[in-house]
């Protein structure tokens, strides 16, 4: 990958006001000014109902900002219609909880975007899906429906579905939510492999944005952090700046889960 592509801007929000999916007249985050460069790994932290999911959906072009502008791969999201489908498919999105299609099996869920968007033969689809399921250790669950799947594997299947089209930008809404320790560690390592360039993506670095309601799990020198608090989006910086931040919101997000109980 050339230096030029690595430094190009993937997402650019200017004075963007983020509204909710349920009520477009309700603004949950004001004046977001945010640039995400290619190859970066961002962690957006905030408490419950702080607007993390809506911010991510806006960044993915699934919601329109109620004010200001949001550009993804240089394309204004208000013109992100079917004419720009190719641009849109460069973005992968993993919802909190996975949101797998309940009537389809894991393999069918993963194959659906490939079958729908690409004109591939059934053998090619099957080959791609099997390879990705193998990478993500999902092969034993290929024929299970999401209803019969544990939350850990559901989340992983949703990630596989988002990766099947080999996106250049991946957004994950609360990917660690409800995961067991082993799955959390696996996911964090896998995301790091994707950031530096995984074989599935042909070794190309992936731009990643993840939302979270706790910061400790995401500690890493190569990640950049932002915080949502009381309708304000603030870029904190790298981990050292997070650790030394005097912000109450950041301290709350850094607190051990058990500290509040004690």
């Amino acid at each position: 990958m050339s230096e030029n592509i690595l430094n190009s801007t993937v997402i650019e929000m200017r004075d963007a006001a983020i509204s909710t999916l349920r009520d477009s007249s309700l603004t949950v985050v004001e004046n977001v000014n945010w640039s995400v460069a290619s190859g970066e790994f961002w962690v957006v932290a905030g408490q419950q109902q702080s607007g993390k999911s809506d911010l991510l959906m806006t960044a993915a072009g699934l919601l329109l900002p109620s004010r200001g502008s949001c550009r993804v791969f240089g394309c204004e999201t208000d013109s992100f219609s079917e004419a720009q489908l190719a641009e849109r498919l460069r973005v992968g999105f993993v919802f909190a909880g996975g949101k797998l299609f309940s009537q389809l099996t894991v393999a069918e869920n993963v194959a659906l975007p490939l079958r729908y968007q690409k004109n591939l033969s059934e053998a090619e689809v099957s080959e791609n899906v099997s390879a990705l399921l193998e990478i993500m250790e999902l092969t034993p669950f290929a024929n299970s429906t999401s209803v019969n799947l544990a939350a850990n594997w559901r989340q992983r299947a949703a990630l596989a579905r988002a990766l099947i089209l080999k996106p250049e930008l991946l957004l994950l809404d609360q990917p660690l939510g409800g995961l067991g320790v082993r799955h959390r560690q696996w996911l964090l390592q896998f995301l790091e492999q994707l950031r530096v360039g995984h074989a599935w993506l042909g070794g190309q670095p992936l731009t990643i944005i993840a939302s979270t309601d706790e910061l400790r799990s995401w500690r890493h020198t190569q990640r950049r952090f932002a915080v949502l608090d009381e309708k304000v989006f603030s870029v904190i910086g790298v981990w050292n700046e997070v650790a030394s931040s005097a912000s109450t919101a950041v301290k709350e997000l850094l607190a051990e889960p058990t500290a509040a109980i004690m």
Partner: peptide, 9 residues
């Protein structure tokens, strides 16, 4: 929403 995220109408 999941369909829209996958570019499926």
């Amino acid at each position: 929403e999941a369909l829209e995220a996958l570019g499926i109408d």
